[in-house]
Design a protein around this nucleic acid. Structure first.
Ligand code: MN
Ligand code: MN
Ligand code: MN
Ligand code: MN
Lengths: 219, 219
DNA sequence: TAATATAATTAGGCGCGCCTAAAATTTTTA
DNA sequence: TAAAAATTTTAGGCGCGCCTAATTATATTA
């Protein structure tokens, strides 16, 4: 069996190497988990002993197939719990991550399958992220950053990169949620910000920082 | 804040002193928690430092008002999660305790209030046990043991004392659940067992051990 | 390529929750 | 009421997950 701490490390390594497509180095893991490099080394050695990661001293770390399977299961649990909190208990999309961070560690396998069924085998979490199925397969998720759309184009918001509470609350404030239609009115070259029409009505202004973190499909 | 371990100890002390109305001694706590007496002493000292229990060396332990409030909150959380698992996810009444034992430690206060609302502010858990409200008040729960009913009397099952999976599965097997009507057909004095008619049809035989653990109200 | 800067690991230590064994205290029994 | 038994506490130790400081290895730069 694995501890809560082990599970959080496995998730972090998965996120770094598979989602952000960066190297999972000792320091990047430490930064991601707000811990110290020496703590990461300790844990990575432990995970290597358990054959969850491939680890060569000074050479960074990758997940083994066993570790990847464990990571995907954690992602599945996290996102199902987030959807439960959002859809059934009425939490806002910026209130769910922290609680799911705890709920994802509940051990029962049958629990997660029952939850999946209760939620009608959903494919997306409240942030637009794909929920892997029981076998670990991710539903196809084609989207691009709002920053990549050009003037005049209309698109639908299908996800976010930054899931921080402040960013999500900001999107709420300016009237953006999943499914919102955005039209690029103008692109301000000097700071790469955009003027945008929201749902064919309100006009807003979004910084480059913001538009890099909003995921779209074309309409 | 309190750890999972502290919470489990507080719950055990509450159960021993308030529900079973026994003394919460070092050894009774140790037995209840399947741990060693020396571990209990360690924890009880820690809980005393936090003003959650009154503790005098060699004299056993009682909850302070603060400790009792914390205990009741744990009971509330445990029973709400049990009901969720039973009612919403379709678990059987003998499958829920272990999972709730983990879920009860999820930290968010607003979560538990949302869950309460989602479940329609229930008063009883799937074992017939009372669920304290947000303020810590328990709904009145009058019932008596099946072993206290006399021949010819009819009653309704409203709870169980033993929540072990084996006992609950046994009750399922003989057709007893909450709300089942039982009629005392005969009392066998030599071993205090009962012959019982279930829901006006099937005749079964229950040992003294069993009938001490079934809670009834008269019909 | 040698010196320097950066990154990673190791050494050693800490609190937590648990254990065993020994000592202290209380309760029971003779 | 004194000895024996049972209970409880203390002493000391262990694994976990974390830390700081020191050391070692790798990457960068002159
Ligand atoms: Mn987590
Ligand atoms: Mn999410
Ligand atoms: Mn518990
Ligand atoms: Mn219960």
């Amino acid at each position: 069996m694995s501890t809560t701490s082990e599970e959080n490390y496995i998730k972090a390594i998965f996120k770094l190497s598979h989602e952000l497509k960066t190297e999972a180095t000792t320091s990047s893991i430490a930064e991601h988990m707000a811990t110290k490099a020496s703590s990461v080394t300790d844990m990575v050695q432990k995970l290597a002993d358990k054959h969850l990661v491939n680890y060569i001293k000074y050479q960074g770390v990758t997940l083994t197939p066993k570790g990847e399977k464990a990571a995907i299961k954690m992602v599945r649990k996290h996102r199902l719990w987030e959807l439960f909190l959002y859809q059934k208990l009425g939490f806002k999309w910026n209130e769910i991550h922290e609680i799911a961070e705890e709920l994802e560690h509940i051990k029962s396998d049958v629990l997660i399958e029952r939850l999946d069924k209760f939620l009608n085998y959903p494919q997306k979490d409240p942030h637009g992220d794909p929920i892997p199925d029981r076998k670990g397969h991710f539903p196809e998720n084609k989207s691009f950053k709002l920053s990549q759309l050009s003037k005049g184009v209309k698109g639908i918001v299908v996800g976010v990169n930054d899931k921080s509470s402040v960013f999500l609350a900001y999107l709420d404030k300016v009237g953006i949620q999943l499914g919102t239609e955005l039209e690029i009115i103008d692109c301000n070259e000097f700071d790469n910000s955009l003027d945008i029409k929201v749902n064919d009505s309100k006009l807003i202004h979004l910084s480059y920082q913001a538009i890099q973190n909003i995921l779209m499909i074309e309409k």
